[in-house]
Design a binder for these strands. Structure first.
Lengths: 228, 228
DNA sequence: TGTCGGCATTAACCCACGTCAATTCATCGA
DNA sequence: TCGATGAATTGACGTGGGTTAATGCCGACA
């Protein structure tokens, strides 16, 4: 989570506005002159093929900022959508640049955040291109678990995913039907337990990490650093 | 391509060293304290699953720099390998930081480069997760063609890929056998013509763009900006 | 309390792509 | 000139995951 900066805080207090689940905050190719700050709720940054197939590139969680503006400085190269009811703040480029100029700490933490994001992207590309459905699902569960946990502290084995299996598929490159099949299988194997409304309980952290082909400790460091 | 900077040039003249095709310049998790500059040849940045499956995350072309150092500032989160005989220069972090501090132009162009890289990654993730083999192959051909072309000027419909079908598969998330099949099919359809040694001639640019589900003009802008 | 709409679940079926293996071909050192 | 090596190519075959569609469940709303 971002540390507290008086001027930053000031901006975040103004201009908050609530958006309903499903709201599209920015579309691909649309004008974009601001960085978004998520005060509450989850967003998804995604791209679509002409035939309508959607791929979620990144989830944006409360306390994070995101700017999908392309190199032209004008248009967004991603679509940003609210996965659940959310509260967001638009910080215009000028204000953001000013914040960065004034605050070396913020500058440094944003730099770290970018590097961490790039590492995460690489890890996801590896799974998208090369891993089985089971590995992909196991991985996303671990990743989400860790990212949710750091809002509290440490590693909570139980967490809530505020969106459906369709979106999980859009993120892992699978159909919602196969996401379902895979989650059932993990349930039957006793690795996880799914409750109502996409509540997830990781029953066997070790087995899940095995399936995801990931070293949990390393991943936690990587993702957690993101917040520094 | 990077513009000319006296001090930058100075560094690039020293410390050049040649590496043979297949050389692994950095391994995943290995110590990494420098940024690499490619004076000649192509590199690949990749990640691997425990079972050995490899995914190429990015190609690094002559004139580009790359730094795979993770947020810990110590280890590389990618493997860097020479796809063909290459000449590279290691620029240590301190020198690089100094260059950035002294040169606002370089700082700005690197910033642009990072944004462009992120847009490219998103585009690739979309294809990895959601597109057919044909679309992926068509897309990578167009992407490579444009990136090679900008070393000269404009869009050359004929170009050379200095590595094999296996690596094309490692980049697109396909098996080398299926890469081969797909290339043959594109040949038979008259969209491309493959010559010896992975020489590619795009015979029908429009049809290829159609298959790739991409707007060539937009993509060219995006990739070309990368070089600013 | 009923009805409606959206999501999860499951089964049946199919196909795009992976795997394995044989064949050809180009390169290269002895 | 002769293997020897490694990549491209092609065919046969198997399968993981997509598609379709039926069913059930829950929450919202009247």
């Amino acid at each position: 989570m971002l540390k507290t900066y008086s001027m930053f805080d000031d901006i975040l207090q103004r201009d908050q506005h609530a958006v309903a689940k499903g709201t599209i905050l920015k579309s691909e190719g649309e004008e974009s002159h601001s960085r978004m700050y998520v005060a509450g709720g989850w967003l998804a940054a995604s791209k679509s093929l002409e035939d309508g197939e959607q791929q979620i590139i990144e989830f944006i969680l409360p306390g994070e900022t995101y700017d999908p503006t392309a190199t032209d400085g004008k248009t967004s190269f991603l679509q940003i959508e609210a996965l659940c009811d959310a509260v967001i703040v638009s910080i215009d480029k000028t204000s953001w640049a000013q914040l960065l100029r004034q605050d070396p700490e913020l500058r440094k933490s944003e730099r770290q955040r970018e590097i961490a994001a790039q590492a995460r992207q690489s890890e996801r590309m590896l799974r998208l291109g090369r891993a089985s459905a089971e590995t992909r699902i196991a991985y996303v569960l671990i990743e989400l678990c860790i990212r949710v946990s750091r809002q509290g502290t440490g590693f909570d084995s139980e967490f809530h995913v505020p969106f459906g299996q369709q979106q999980l598929g859009d993120f892992t490159g699978l159909s919602s039907v196969h996401v379902c099949r895979t989650l059932r299988r993990l349930n039957r194997a006793g690795v996880i337990r799914t409750g109502d409304h996409m509540d997830i309980l990781i029953k066997d952290q070790h087995a899940l990490a095995e399936l995801a082909q990931v070293d949990i400790a390393a991943l936690r460091d990587e993702i957690t650093t993101d917040a520094a």
